[in-house]
Design a binder for these strands. Structure first.
Lengths: 218, 218
DNA sequence: GATGTTACGAACTAGGTAGTTAATTAACGT
DNA sequence: ACGTTAATTAACTACCTAGTTCGTAACATC
């Protein structure tokens, strides 16, 4: 009779099932860690069964790697939208720091996955070809900003792009990754909305203050 | 006959057994995470048996909490040795940053435990009375340094002690906690000896640069 | 509307894992 | 020397958990 419209709710939909498994698995892994996550629990939280997890992903580990790959892919996509080339060096590095801040603030699940991965010595990332050679364009960008700043005289400190990236990432990651222990010990939820704008300013002032060299000895 | 000397190797020694369990458990928990750690594996790595773990600690969770308490106790002990009161504000905060750097560099197991604890939303720390109310004297110290620096005019930026502590901790913790993913993605082991001295200088210059206010807008 | 293929589900298995039971032995006071 | 208690051991259990088996229902194609 009438052909089914494209929007019809299909009973069988590989893409949808696959996507739902990934979504639920990400939640479970970020909440429980790799070993703590239960395949049965992931299945119970879906409208499909555990069998489908093995049908589409083969094993718990491959599912976890797929979750990592998806998360990193989203981060890369966001990074590509960054355009600070037209700014003067000081504003360029400050903007990059603030963009990194916003980005990490908005992708907390990703930060938790990275923390879990570090506990396991990055063994899963290393197993993934899609992730192993993830040369990040952000380093080139920082390099260009640093060169421009040194040439213009705005930056005094001799800095290395990886170090600068580390300094910015450290600040942006820490407040999310360590929010629970820090909150318990110091009585402040670093990630609460009332601290967000101030910390966002901080990361920019931190990196600019560092590069302008006012922290150097003597 | 001859009374046994105090140094004699006792076959039964509760203190020694307890200490050995804690030591091996710390290694296993930091390597595998909480859920990934195996009580049987901890027992297998010792000269004693699994039953002793339950005899002394009651459960896997209580053992883990005991490991956390021991690690935090050691950190507090180290913090108490810090004396920067006699230094001028700029040197005081730089020295504190460098001491924090050294301390975290030397206590990497502790950092991993904290990362694991954050994955579990600090639920175990909250269960421990010994840790829940761990007001840290380091905040008072920073407060005094900031006040002195503002009074002397060395510091321009209006900063909050918790924020400053966070900025320093973030840098010092990140290079250890995220070494594996960062190393895999950027091809640099941040914790390798050849980067140590430079990064130690960085953290001091970063915090001084920030407080001197050279990063502020306009 | 028959046929082959893809997506799916219920029930099952083998091995792992935290926690126990109960017997045994070393240390120590008297 | 002897009884009491703290420390230790081996074997055990009940449950959990990743991964499988096998059968079936929906879809596409002709």
């Amino acid at each position: 009779m009438t052909p089914q419209p494209a929007t019809r709710e299909r009973r069988r939909d590989a893409d949808r099932t696959r996507a739902e498994i990934l979504k639920v698995a990400e939640q479970e892994f970020t909440k429980q860690g790799y070993a703590g996550a239960r395949v049965d629990e992931i299945a119970a939280l879906m409208r499909t069964t555990k069998r489908m997890i093995y049908y589409y992903f083969g094993s718990k580990e491959q599912l976890y790697i797929a979750v990592l790959e998806k998360a990193y892919a989203e981060v890369r996509a966001a990074e590509r939208t960054v355009d600070v080339e037209h700014l003067a060096p000081v504003e360029a590095i400050r903007t990059l720091a603030e963009l990194t801040f916003d980005h990490h603030d908005a992708h907390r699940e990703f930060i938790k996955l990275v923390a879990i991965e570090n506990i396991h010595q990055a063994e899963h990332i290393r197993k993934s070809e899609a992730l192993a050679n993830l040369g990040t364009p952000v380093l080139d960008l920082i390099e260009r900003i640093l060169d421009a700043g040194t040439a213009s005289g705005d930056f005094v400190t001799e800095a290395d792009a990886i170090d600068v990236h580390m300094m910015i990432s450290a600040f942006c990651v820490f407040r999310v990754a360590n929010q629970h222990t820090f909150g318990t010990l110091f009585g402040r939820d670093m990630t609460a909305p009332e601290h967000r704008a101030r910390q966002r300013r901080m990361v920019g002032e931190m990196i600019v203050g560092y590069l302008r060299g006012e922290g150097s000895l003597r």
